[in-house]
Amino acid sequence: MIKQFIADAFTDKVFHGNPAAICLPERWPDEKLMQDIASENRLSETAFVVKENNGWKLRWFTPGGEIDLCGHATLATAFVLINFVEPDLSEIEFSILSGKLSVKKKNELYEMDFPPYELKRVEVTEAMENAIGFKPLEAWIGRDLVCILEREDQVINAQPDLEKVKALDGLLLHITSKGKEKYDCVSRTFAPKLAVDEDPVCGSGHCHLVPLWSKKVGKKEISAYQASSRGGVLYCELSGSRVKLAGQAALYSRGELCIEI
């Protein structure tokens, strides 16, 4: 049996934010089984976390494959471990494929420390406009493609052609604009290459967006809103060469998978 929790990240109430499954096997399943579980869950990410050498090793799988970095599932995993597995902890350092990743509990927020993605400005193309439905003002590429739109309502109302999105460069597509009132920036994220139409709230996407918007608005602390149908709020900071992302989480379910490993 494998213990599994589902938590909604970057929100303080269920049915909002971004849901992630968190699996706590006693030892590592093989990769095919982890991928099968992620595909069966049909959430944008399923996290697998195993206790190793007095620490925790963390991996993330989308329905379409393993991914190198995931913010919301990291937040959800830390929330589950701190509240339901190791309640004496207030900080967790995860071992991930690319190194280390820490999460600190600060009152009701869980603050994560990430490396930013290096961005390169690229030409705005007709293919981008056709895929998104609006012509971007700017386009940038890191792991993902970031397209800056003129207005917040364009981000909110966009209905991208996901088949055309698959043909664009970058693993994911983020569309974003300056916030109109309450938030410094708004965004939405699409990941059809990973069998995820729209990621409700994307932490790793903000490792692209925060450095970009910090420079544009001239401040280190950025309040960000992901304008998916579920919605989510991220409290962000560009701190030296790192990006800090903080948010809340809410538990949706806990149970066991009827699978032997």
Results as ranks from 00 to 15, higher is better:
residue 213 W to N: 10
residue 171 L to I: 15
residue 142 G to C: 01
residue 260 E to L: 15
residue 238 L to A: 15
residue 222 I to N: 04
residue 192 P to V: 07
residue 77 T to I: 00
residue 246 A to R: 04
residue 165 V to I: 13
residue 167 A to N: 14
residue 182 K to F: 12
residue 182 K to Y: 11
residue 181 E to G: 08
residue 219 K to R: 12
residue 96 I to P: 07
residue 41 N to I: 02
residue 52 E to L: 01
residue 186 V to D: 02
residue 38 A to F: 04
residue 41 N to T: 03
residue 106 K to R: 14
residue 91 E to Y: 09
residue 94 F to L: 00
residue 57 K to R: 12
residue 32 K to F: 08
residue 98 S to M: 10
residue 59 R to C: 05
residue 196 V to G: 05
residue 25 P to S: 09
residue 257 L to G: 03
residue 200 P to D: 03
residue 97 L to D: 13
residue 22 I to V: 12
residue 117 Y to D: 12
residue 14 V to E: 07
residue 152 E to V: 09
residue 239 S to N: 15
residue 42 R to F: 12
residue 95 S to A: 12
residue 232 G to Q: 06
residue 185 C to P: 08
residue 86 E to H: 10
residue 68 D to Q: 12
residue 73 A to L: 07
residue 98 S to C: 10
residue 81 L to A: 04
residue 6 I to R: 11
residue 184 D to H: 09
residue 107 N to T: 09
residue 54 N to F: 14
residue 235 Y to D: 12
residue 136 P to M: 03
residue 57 K to Y: 10
residue 177 S to N: 07
residue 24 L to F: 01
residue 34 M to G: 04
residue 146 V to P: 00
residue 131 A to Q: 03
residue 64 G to E: 05
residue 236 C to G: 01
residue 175 I to A: 04
residue 60 W to F: 08
residue 214 S to H: 07
residue 99 G to W: 05
residue 193 K to G: 09
residue 123 E to R: 13
residue 27 R to F: 15
residue 95 S to R: 12
residue 54 N to E: 15
residue 252 Y to H: 11
residue 84 F to W: 07
residue 140 W to Q: 08
residue 247 G to P: 09
residue 121 R to G: 08
residue 202 C to I: 06
residue 67 I to V: 13
residue 246 A to V: 04
residue 91 E to A: 13
residue 61 F to Y: 14
residue 49 V to T: 05
residue 7 A to G: 08
residue 218 G to F: 01
residue 196 V to A: 07
residue 34 M to H: 05
residue 30 D to M: 02
residue 108 E to R: 15
residue 213 W to D: 10
residue 183 Y to E: 03
residue 251 L to D: 03
residue 134 F to D: 08
residue 49 V to S: 01
residue 161 D to M: 06
residue 189 T to D: 02
residue 115 P to T: 12
residue 39 S to M: 14
residue 132 I to R: 02
residue 193 K to L: 05
residue 90 S to N: 14
residue 125 T to H: 02
residue 237 E to P: 10
residue 71 G to W: 04
residue 236 C to E: 03
residue 190 F to Q: 00
residue 19 P to V: 07
residue 233 V to A: 09
residue 242 R to I: 08
residue 242 R to H: 12
residue 71 G to R: 04
residue 117 Y to Q: 14
residue 256 E to C: 11
residue 158 A to N: 09
residue 78 A to K: 00
residue 84 F to V: 01
residue 41 N to M: 13
residue 194 L to H: 04
residue 78 A to H: 00
residue 146 V to D: 04
